[in-house]
Design a protein around this nucleic acid. Structure first.
Length: 376
RNA sequence: GGAGCCGUGGUGUAGCCUGGUUUAACACACUGGCCUGUCAAGCCAGAGAUCGCGGGUUCGAAUCCCGUCGGCUCCG
């Protein structure tokens, strides 16, 4: 195996740890700048954080976003992005980019999916044509896109999944991970492996332990937050992290609610992504400590208060719930934009608060106050 | 004065001719829920009209007949 063991311009340094929880802070150095962890990555599936300009995303404090290899491969095509000088240049984002391999799409798009040892064959969600994605394909695509961090192609199973299925998937994922390492040839790109195992404790631990042996520069925790209860998610995180090296970044894939993120940080997770903040914004909901606020509700028709009086975002500083409700009821784009701004602000602020709490050894207190907060 | 057309939930309509698959359908609006490595400015669900009104025919009428009220159009 000729795997790249070092990546130019990439490193991860832990700067502090909370003594009473597993939380830690770090600096993730990438070819496109440093990223303070714990960090949330807004999702830019189609090379755009929906409803936001790159400047707005950066102004909120974000230094890294997630894009999707599968979607960009199908449209506009890798050639287009290569010709434009790579994904960063194409989308006008000079911060770091992590690309997802397409493994999740195989599950979520789910039409005529056939997983073989060679790869995944399924139908394009755009035109129904049959397509095939192998670990090597995903590496080639992500390398061409030029992401700072690429993810190994994995098989992500829905919840609940049969044990036998999970077991077979575990071996397949190990094999695919090795092939991704072997195929990965972009020296300016780090490649993360992905721990699977569903919600089965021993399979989860086994997947983590065997992935750890492959010595990736970072690890994703995949197949979580796909419908299983929160306690189970947290248990799987603990089991996985126990098997992974302390000094490598750990990335929990797909968690974007405030409490869930904070509880995961307390267990040692460094990176997150989720469509939740941006998607629910476009579906009229604001992220609040206690969960979500649906601005379509009639209760806010004449409510002069901001979404959250303690929030410093542009939307909360400038507009009432009544106005936001009016905008989303009228399906005005501005309403969805403002809610996206608020939701991304909340997540970035939470990670900032968590970083400060690690430095001051007060992660537990922050968690307690977050759980106790009710915005109504 | 005469003739014709129309009157169905909040709004706009379908059903009427060829009564019974109508516990009256659809769209929008309204109310609520959902969304977590984005096929998602989306999806799901709910409330809401006994069909202008009265009478008749019929086993059965939103549907047929008569009358009446209201609106519109045309002719005088």
């Amino acid at each position: 195996m000729t795997a790249l063991r070092t990546t130019e311009g990439f490193s991860f340094t832990i700067t502090a740890s909370d003594r009473r929880t597993g939380a830690r802070t770090g600096i993730l150095t990438t070819p496109h700048g440093e990223v303070a962890t714990p960090c949330f990555m807004p999702v830019a599936t189609q090379a755009t954080v929906k409803a936001m300009t790159p400047d707005e995303v950066a102004d909120l404090g974000y230094r890294m976003v997630l894009a999707n290899a599968y979607h960009l491969w199908l449209r506009p095509g890798v050639e287009v992005i290569s010709a434009a000088g790579g994904l960063h240049h194409f989308m006008g984002w000079d911060g770091a980019i992590l690309t997802d391999s397409g493994g999740y799409q195989v599950m979520s798009l789910g039409k005529d999916v056939k997983i073989t040892p060679e790869g995944a064959s399924f139908r394009s969600h755009l035109d129904g044509s049959k397509i095939f994605l192998s670990p090597e394909d995903s590496m080639r695509i992500q390398s061409a896109l030029g992401a700072d961090i690429a993810m190994a192609l994995d098989e992500c199973l829905p919840y609940p999944a049969e044990r036998g299925r999970l077991q077979r998937s575990l071996d397949l994922n190990l094999d695919w991970a090795r092939r991704c390492l072997a195929a990965h040839d972009n020296p300016r790109q780090a490649l993360f492996g992905i721990v699977q195992g569903g919600s089965s404790a021993d399979l989860r631990a086994s997947s983590a332990a065997r992935m750890a042996e492959l010595d990736f520069p970072g690890y994703g925790l995949g197949g979580l937050s796909v419908g299983e209860p929160r306690e189970l998610t947290l248990e799987m995180i603990e089991l996985s992290l126990a098997e992974l090296p302390q000094d490598k970044p750990r990335y929990l894939m797909g968690v974007g609610d405030l409490l869930g993120l904070a509880e995961s940080v307390a267990r040692g997770v460094d990176l997150f992504d989720s469509v939740l903040p941006t998607r629910i914004a476009r579906n009229s909901s604001a992220l609040v400590a206690s969960g979500r606020m649906n601005l379509r509700n009639a209760a806010y028709r004449e409510d002069p208060r901001p979404v959250d009086e303690t929030c410093g975002c542009y939307a909360c500083r400038s507009f009432s719930r009544a106005y936001l409700r009016h905008l989303v009821m009228a399906k005005e784009i501005l309403g969805f934009h403002l809610l996206t701004v608020h939701n991304l602000f909340q997540l970035e602020k939470l990670t900032r608060d968590l970083r400060a709490a690690v430095a001051s050894q007060s992660v537990g207190a922050l968690l307690d106050s977050l759980a106790a907060r009710e915005v109504e």
